[in-house]
């Protein structure tokens, strides 16, 4: 699987132009138009949640596994990176690699459960893992600082280059996001990507056509975990502080929501949904007391009106537009 995946990834990797263009435009816009440090902070959050959601999109959108453990996996990445930098004085890049690996292992552990039990129950297992990790973070005070979390994370420096300014952090987050997006697109286009997707849509059928669903699901869990781990490590640099509250069930549900609202399986939709939802949840909740009520009801209404998310809406618009054109031409 790995070999074929690498091969097909390589074929797609030859054409990164669209992603490079998107990256360039986004960085330019952020650099030109977003000035205040709090807005740049918002941009960082958008990029990091988008990254974690892209990971979940591989697990849920492609492999069909409903997980609420993504925020916990992100927490493990963040805490691993943060603690390595504080306690072992490791440079960020090393901490990032270890964080990615640790998160992959946790996500793999969760993925293993999917091999044994029904996908109906999978969400309960992920819930249990998420809550267990959060209890660990709270109770192991000596290591994690407990509920109050850990501060004093060294600012971001990569290879002697100080990247701790809000703009530099935002750019780093955006670059990482586009790399992740690109890889996710490549994966989706690859043969194993098709396999993962088929396994998610209809496991029996996929199995009947000779696809090893279990292995693909496991692979999707590992890959998705790396995304969350990297997002977590960068999150630590963004806040220079880590606490269990930032990776609560509410945050896991936000990531899940991003994927569903974006249109499961669609990477572009996921990124767009992350931008919108992070803005809404930071903006709406800040503005009024009815914010959460609107947010909750909004979720239900959007699901009923547009269950295929932004991706579905875009598709429908395109089709409607096409039909109108066709009619014009025909008459």
């Amino acid at each position: 699987m790995v070999a074929t995946a690498m091969q097909s990834v390589r074929t797609v990797l030859r054409r990164p132009y669209a992603h490079l263009a998107g990256l360039a435009i986004t960085v330019l816009v952020v650099q030109q138009f977003v000035e205040s440090s709090s807005s740049l902070f918002l941009v960082q959050l958008m990029a990091l949640y988008a990254l974690a959601a892209l990971g979940l999109n591989i697990i849920l959108g492609m492999a069909g596994l409903l997980s609420v453990a993504q925020a916990a996996v992100m927490a493990l990445g963040g805490y691993t990176a943060g603690l390595l930098m504080i306690k072992a004085q490791l440079p960020f890049v090393v901490a990032l690699l270890v964080a990615g690996a640790a998160s992959a292992v946790l996500s793999a552990f969760v993925g293993l459960a999917a091999l044994r039990i029904s996908s109906h129950y999978f969400i309960l297992v992920t819930l249990a893992v998420a809550e267990a990790l959060s209890l660990l973070l709270i109770n192991e005070e000596d290591l994690t600082g407990g509920y109050n979390g850990i501060g004093g994370i060294p600012p971001l420096v990569i290879g002697g280059l100080d990247l701790s300014s809000p703009l530099a952090l935002a750019v780093v987050a955006i670059v990482t996001l586009f790399i992740g997006w690109y890889v996710a697109d490549a994966l989706a286009a690859s043969r194993s990507g098709h396999g993962i997707h088929a396994g998610g849509a209809d496991p029996q059928l996929a199995m009947a056509s000779g696809i090893n669903v279990a292995r693909l699901r496991f692979g999707a869990s590992v890959t998705g975990g790396v995304y969350a781990g990297v997002a977590g490590a960068l999150y630590a640099e963004t806040l220079l502080y880590l606490g269990p509250g930032d990776f609560s069930l509410g945050k896991a549900l936000l990531i899940l929501l991003i994927v569903v609202i974006g249109g499961m399986g669609s990477n572009a939709g996921t990124v767009a949904a992350a931008v919108i939802l992070v803005y809404l949840s930071e903006g709406l909740l800040r503005l009024t007391t009815v914010g959460p009520l609107v947010y909750g009801l909004g979720i239900m209404v959007i699901l009923v009106i547009a269950p295929n998310g932004l991706d579905g809406v875009a598709r429908r618009l395109r089709r409607a537009f096409g039909r109108i054109l066709e009619r014009r031409v025909a008459r």
Binding site: A18, H19, A21, G22, I25, D185, A186, A189, G269, A314
Partner: peptide, 10 residues
């Protein structure tokens, strides 16, 4: 997918 989508979403 790498060709069309990102531009739109960009």
């Amino acid at each position: 997918p790498a060709r069309r989508r990102p531009r739109r979403v960009g």
